[in-house]
Structures are given as C-alpha cells and as structure tokens.
Deep mutational scan, measured.
Amino acid sequence: MGFKLLSKLLVYLTASIMAIASPLAFSVDSSGEYPTVSEIPVGEVRLYQIADGVWSHIATQSFDGAVYPSNGLIVRDGDELLLIDTAWGAKNTAALLAEIEKQIGLPVTRAVSTHFHDDRVGGVDVLRAAGVATYASPSTRRLAEVEGNEIPTHSLEGLSSSGDAVRFGPVELFYPGAAHSTDNLIVYVPSASVLYGGCAIYELSRTSAGNVADADLAEWPTSIERIQQHYPEAQFVIPGHGLPGGLDLLKHTTNVVKAHTNRSVVE
C-alpha cells in the first residue's frame, strides 16, 4: 500500500471513529477524501466538511520552486461564519470567499490569524475590503508590521502568557507558548472536538522541520505538551499544512522538532 493511500485511509478511519463516538456532533463529509496538494491548482481553494458547521479550507501556493498546501478553518456561528487564517495570499483568499459563498452561503463576518507569517495573514486586506472584521493577538499584529505583512485590524486580548485561553464565538483560542513562531495560536472547536494546530503542528508525513527561522526550538516541545494537557479530548487535529489526523500529530511534531534540534547540535 502506497504512503499517500495509507495517509488518506488514516484520515478516513479517524473521521469514521469520530462519527461513531459522537453521532450528534459529527456529520463528516462523505463526498470524498481530504484534498491534497496535487489536486488543488494554485489560485483555487477546496472546502472539506469535518463536522456539522465545521470545515477546513485548503489552498496551495508556490514557494521556492515548489507547491505547498495550506489549511485553515471555518466555523459556523449562528447565521454567520468565523474564518481562521487566510488562504495564503490575496488571490487565494478572494477564491476562498467565493467558494464559501458557493458552498455554504453564509457571510464571513470575523477572521482570526493564528500567527504573523504570510500563509496566515496574506489576504487580510481582501477580507477587510469584503467587510470582514480581522483579528490577531497584539504580538501577531506587531510582528506582521515588522515583517511588512498585512496586519489584522483588531487585537485579541488575554493571550499574552503561555497557557492563556479565551473564548471567541464558537471557538476557544489558546496560546501554548512559542513553537513554530513566538505568537502562534491554537484554535479548538469544543462542539466538535476539532483542534486546529496551525503551523505549530505537523502532518504525519512530514519528517523535516522546514521553516524554523522564527521558531523557538527549545520551547516548542513544552508548548505541545500544554496543548495535549489542555485538549486531551480532541479527536480531529488539523495541521497548518497537509493531512489531518488525531492527537498523534502532536507527538510526531515533537519528535521531528527534537530530531532537528539534535542534528543542529551535532553539526
């Protein structure tokens, strides 16, 4: 069995187990497998329904001669939608809004960016022009300005110390501490036991640490421990890039980060 097929099978099995364990909360999309990078042309966006009122959005972007996937989250909030992270750029984010209108038909009224990198804030200006209120932590807003990236308009308070959590509509926002970046936030959907790890969490097929220019490698494993301790009931975990899975993604990420750190020390 090929690795790609095995990865998709694991996603399907995880979703099936969740649907059985929580039949009222989960209505997993039966329309197909989780979209992969090879299936999404740059400039297009796919939506994948995880649970009743919960979707991931998947886009792709060219970077350094390669094409990478990027995940975000959409959560229903009454007759409105909360968006977590842009679709990595203005063109993708405009396509995301169009796809949401086509498939869901509810307005996106608020959006949260989970850290300051372009795959999370690139497209904020498109959201703002569409009347979406954009939010991020003060740290993310400051770092985005320093980096020359787009800056969300509103500040999220109460997320300055490791372990801080605040309720934001249908989700809980959690600051686990520094990891992929010093400002990275985690998003949890309690009604569906869905954990969105953003770039602080890796997919299972990833074996290298990737972009760690703004990471705190020493603190990252401790931050992941905080996530595990705060959300032990999480059933569906979405990484910032690639295929979702279960809580095993947290341990896998820790292993990859520690291996990278150990290699760096040896070198």
Rank of each mutant, 00 (worst) to 15 (best):
A90F: 07
N149K: 15
V265T: 13
L159V: 10
L217P: 07
K8C: 15
H230A: 15
Y68F: 15
A98Q: 13
S22K: 12
I224V: 11
I104L: 07
N149G: 11
N255H: 11
A215G: 09
E44Y: 08
V237M: 00
M1L: 06
L195N: 01
S27F: 10
E101C: 06
G105T: 13
L106N: 07
S38D: 12
I151E: 02
A234T: 08
V37D: 15
S27I: 09
D85N: 04
H241I: 00
V126K: 06
V67K: 15
E33W: 10
G72H: 01
I58F: 07
D52T: 11
F63M: 13
N262K: 11
I227K: 01
G32Y: 14
E150Q: 06
S62A: 11
L195K: 02
G131W: 06
T134K: 01
L73D: 00
G78H: 10
L9W: 14
L247T: 14
A200E: 02
G169E: 05
L9E: 15
V42F: 08
P41W: 07
L10T: 15
P35G: 07
I227C: 01
D119E: 04
T36C: 07
G158A: 07
T86M: 00
S7R: 09
W220C: 05
H260D: 11
K258C: 07
L96H: 03
G197D: 05
S70I: 03
W88T: 00
A215W: 03
V112H: 05
L156T: 04
S161L: 12
P152M: 00
H154L: 10
F116T: 00
R46H: 08
L82D: 01
Q235G: 08
T222A: 13
L47Y: 02
H117L: 02
K251W: 11
S7F: 12
Q61P: 05
I224E: 01
T254A: 11
S160K: 13
K258E: 14
N255L: 10
A95V: 11
G169Q: 04
T253E: 00
R120C: 05
T86P: 02
E147Y: 15
L73W: 01
V257L: 12
S7A: 09
L13K: 14
T254C: 07
V45H: 03
S155E: 14
S137F: 02
E219N: 09
G198E: 03
A215R: 04
V42L: 09
T60S: 13
T261V: 14
E203V: 06
E39H: 12
K4C: 09
D164Q: 12
L217Q: 06
P35Q: 08
K251A: 12
S113I: 05
A215E: 06
L185Y: 00
H57L: 04
V212T: 10
L173D: 03
D29C: 07
V266R: 14
N92Y: 04
D29L: 09
E145T: 11
Y175P: 01
P35H: 07
L217I: 11
D77Q: 05
V187A: 12
G105V: 07
S22M: 14
K8Q: 09
P138G: 09
A165E: 11
S7T: 09
E33G: 12
D29Y: 09
P190E: 10
L5Y: 15
D77I: 02
F3L: 08
R76S: 12
A130Y: 13
Y34L: 09
G78V: 09
C199I: 02
V189S: 03
A59C: 07
V45P: 11
V45S: 06
P170R: 05
D248G: 12
Y135M: 02
L250E: 02
G163R: 05
P232Y: 06
A218N: 13
D85F: 00
N262E: 13
E233W: 09
Q61K: 13
S31M: 09
P170Q: 06
T36P: 13
